[in-house]
Design a protein around this nucleic acid. Structure first.
Lengths: 307, 307
DNA sequence: AACCGAGCATAAGACACCCTTGGGGCTGAC
DNA sequence: GTCAGCCCCAAGGGTGTCTTATGCTCGGTT
């Protein structure tokens, strides 16, 4: 049912025979023995239901049908080698597109350096970057709108939050780096000069929270410390958080990594206890992880995170 | 060495998978089982050295390499089916060219009727006709300049002429019809009214011979009758022979078939004894005889000769 | 919460295909 | 006449391919 068609191998052999004029020469060109060529041609003529070659003792000639097939074979084999080359380029990292989606402001230093190294090592590849929040970015990954999603996760505070990581159990999770949350208080705050702050010391402060998941995790941490934070504002824009805190409107916690590219105007940063870690990971699909360009980009991200 | 390339079968399966979005549906479309599709795709991905499909649980998506391959597959498979159709047309007598070469004036009635029936039965085929003498026509056949050669041969007169037929022992010889030689004498000749002429009765007449092979055979026949003919003229143009005989310049023998389309001006025809037969045959190469259009044309020639 | 249907992967077995080796016949050249 | 080149044929080993049967996961249902 599937095997009664003309195969590419047949056309390669036929073309070699037509070009050289003999089975033996074609066999030498193809790197096989002469009976192999003979059998291929017999099979091809059988599936064609008409002779393609005329054996005249001295030379091997094509029939009309043979000429027609050779004429078509040229284009077909050209298309086939073009396809093979394009695939080989993708497999050999001389081409390939990787769509990277990252959470906002998570691409401050990690993504740019990884992207620069990737471009330097494999100039043919094209890396695109879009920003999206983790719930949305994972959705994009599953929908096929990107190949790599940068996300972060918090460890379970009390074993009651398996959902945060459980959503990813069918994904490839590549840990990149782990940073911790730093407390942010107004300059005039009573704890502004402290060396460390126990989280419970901020029980009665108004809070400025981050993105929904950050906010949820903040509540969990505080509740396991014995209180429920009063959240007055919520924004995922870190400069805005800094502005709000600097204006004396509340306190906040912020990833250490985000601080590197922010200027603390009117606010002070203080380590909090217990230490809260945030793990930044790269996510992809199992099949996509085996795509060379995707794997290479993951490696670059890992390498960039190692600093 | 030969088996490491992308095969057409792989592309057909890949296209079906891409079109249907699942292995099972592709298997139904292709008329095979689902594991067959699964294994084909695994083999293709292995030879591509990069994943082509992304299994996301719900749907089957293509990677960039997969998209590229499908894009190429469209053209490749189109070319392949076009080639298959053209071959099938030739095999199915909806197309095909047959170059027929015939000896002069041998195509008087035989070839036209066969050609007309061929055209009526298989309108797609193209039959061309060229005239050439038997030594040359066989050469054309061997050189690949025609598919069928019409020729004639005389039976051995004394077992000393094996060369006439021995040249064809690697050819397919299809006997079409056998006619006999008829004597031609001037109107005023002493034997013009005879019912039969013994060949020896023309011993002292001047002769008008035909083509080289006819002339050679004439000499053999006469010699086996006990004399050597005196040949004054030789031409392979039968009307010219008639003219020469009618002008009283000699006697001749002529194939009965040629007489049908000639007007005997000034000459009379008389059967000669012993009866000399001339066998008209169609020649082709063994491989070419298996080409449908060639075989069909041979059949039409045989059928036309049966009348 | 448990069930069920759809879909994919895997394993094993039968079968076909393909290539190679070895031998033979044929043709053309020295 | 011999020799080299070319083709076909037959037999054997290896590989690929398809099928059946089975297990697993997922999504929708009862």
């Amino acid at each position: 049912m599937l095997g009664s068609m003309i195969e590419a191998r047949h056309l390669r052999v036929l073309r070699a025979v037509a070009a050289t004029g003999s089975f033996s020469a074609a066999a030498r060109e193809l790197g096989c023995t002469q009976p192999a060529v003979s059998q291929q041609m017999k099979a091809l003529e059988q599936s064609a239901r008409t002779p393609l070659l005329v054996r005249t003792g001295r030379e091997m000639r094509l029939t009309e049908a043979g000429e027609a097939l050779v004429r078509h074979a040229t284009g077909i084999l050209a298309g086939l080698t073009a396809a093979e080359e394009e695939i080989a380029a993708i497999a050999g990292l001389r081409a390939g597109r990787v769509r990277l989606v990252s959470f906002p402001s998570g691409s401050s230093t990690l993504v740019p350096t990884a992207l620069a190294e990737m471009r330097a090592a494999h100039p043919g590849t094209q890396i695109s970057l879009v920003e999206a929040e983790p719930p949305r970015s994972v959705e994009m990954l599953r929908e096929g709108d990107c190949e790599i999603a940068l996300a972060f996760r918090y460890p379970d505070v009390r074993g009651a939050d398996p959902a945060a990581g459980a959503e990813w159990d069918d994904l490839v999770v590549r840990p990149l780096l782990t940073d911790r949350l730093i407390g942010v208080v107004p300059e005039g705050h009573r704890l502004a000069g402290a060396e460390r702050i126990g989280i419970a010391e901020l029980e009665r402060e108004p809070w400025i929270a981050g993105c929904p998941r950050c906010r949820r995790h903040l509540v969990e941490v505080c509740e396991s410390a014995g209180f429920t934070p009063r959240i007055d504002f919520a924004t995922d824009d870190y400069p805005a958080v800094f502005g709000l805190v600097g204006a004396g409107l509340g306190v906040a916690v912020m990833p250490e990594l985000a601080l590197e590219s922010l200027r603390p105007k009117g606010a002070r940063t203080v380590p909090v206890e217990p230490v809260v870690h945030r793990e930044i990971v790269a996510l992809t699909l199992p099949d996509l992880a085996r795509v060379p360009a995707v794997g290479a980009m993951l490696d670059r991200l890992t390498a960039a995170a190692a600093r």
